[in-house]
Computed example of a mutant assay.
Amino acid sequence: MILEAVMLQVKQGMEEEYEKAFRQASHIISKMDGYISHELQRCLEEEGKYLLLVKWEKLEDHTEGFRQSSEYQEWKRLLHHYYDPFPTVEHFVKVNL
Rank of each mutant, 00 (worst) to 15 (best):
Q9K: 11
H38S: 08
W75I: 10
K31T: 06
F92G: 07
H38Q: 12
L79Y: 00
L8H: 00
P85Y: 05
K20R: 07
Y82V: 10
L78C: 09
M14T: 07
V89N: 00
A5V: 10
Y35E: 01
E15V: 15
L51S: 15
S30H: 12
E46I: 14
A25N: 11
K58H: 06
E47I: 03
S26G: 06
Q24W: 00
R23P: 02
H91D: 10
L52Q: 11
W56M: 00
S37C: 13
E4N: 09
I36H: 15
E74Q: 13
I2R: 11
V6E: 02
A25Y: 01
L78I: 15
Q9G: 12
E64V: 14
F92V: 12
G48H: 08
R23K: 14
V10F: 06
F86E: 09
E45N: 15
E15Q: 07
L44N: 12
R23N: 14
K55T: 09
L78V: 06
L44C: 11
L51Y: 01
L97G: 04
K31Y: 05
A5I: 08
H81F: 09
M7I: 12
K58G: 05
Y35M: 02
C43L: 08
Y83G: 09
P87H: 05
T63N: 02
E39L: 14
L52Y: 01
E4R: 06
H91Y: 05
E17H: 15
L52I: 02
V54K: 02
G13N: 05
N96L: 09
M32L: 03
V54G: 01
V93M: 12
F86M: 13
T63V: 01
S26W: 00
K20L: 01
L79I: 05
I28T: 06
L3E: 06
